[in-house]
């Protein structure tokens, strides 16, 4: 089941990348996708059909808009810090605890943190994210974890778990 989904996904990706629907092209794509699935199928997401639930898709769209807004805000924030003559930065690495369990949810959370204002994920050890922050507002664990990951964590929990 899982292998079939990854096979269809790969053939679709191949057809989009080459943009050419002839029989020869489809055969080449199918053979390459088969080889890829046979060798690397075990690295694909463990239960992909769970994501296709309508409720999850709805929350995913909501999350996408929130994320886009945060992403644009991040850029203005960084641009302000770069262009300011005195460079108002106060960098440091903080430890953020996350309540997410599955590895795909953790990956998406880490990627989201990297693209949002002034934070970049350094490492992920068990349940702790180590985050480099360009301006450390406070060193109290509850305050900063709400500022760094609180906005995304509840949505990601609804989508990927």
């Amino acid at each position: 089941m899982k292998n079939i989904i990854s096979f269809v996904f790969l053939v679709g990706l191949w057809l989009l990348l080459t943009y050419n629907i002839s029989v020869a092209n489809i055969i080449v794509g199918a053979v390459m996708a088969l080889i890829t699935v046979l060798f690397f199928g075990k690295y694909f997401v463990s239960s992909p059909w769970k994501v296709l639930h309508p409720r999850r898709i709805f929350w995913f769209v909501v999350y996408l808009f929130i994320f886009l807004w945060e992403c644009i805000r991040a850029n203005f924030d960084v641009a302000y810090r770069v262009l300011h003559p005195a460079m108002p930065i106060k960098p440091g690495i903080v430890k953020v605890k996350t309540g997410l369990k599955t590895s795909i949810a953790k990956t998406i959370l880490a990627n989201s943190i990297t693209m949002t204002p002034g934070t970049i994920t350094v490492d992920l050890i068990d349940d702790d994210l180590y985050v480099h922050w360009i301006y450390v507002h406070s060193i109290d664990p509850e305050t900063y974890s709400r500022q760094v990951s609180g906005r995304f964590e509840k949505y990601i929990k609804k989508i990927f778990e």
Binding site: V78, M87, P91, T114, G118, I120
Partner: peptide, 22 residues
């Protein structure tokens, strides 16, 4: 903006912040 940050900011981690995002 990203490239100005790459030149101006003081250490590797901050440079990576500005460069990657922008």
């Amino acid at each position: 903006f990203g490239c100005i940050g790459l030149i101006r900011l003081p250490d590797v981690y901050n440079r990576l912040q500005s460069a990657t995002k922008c």
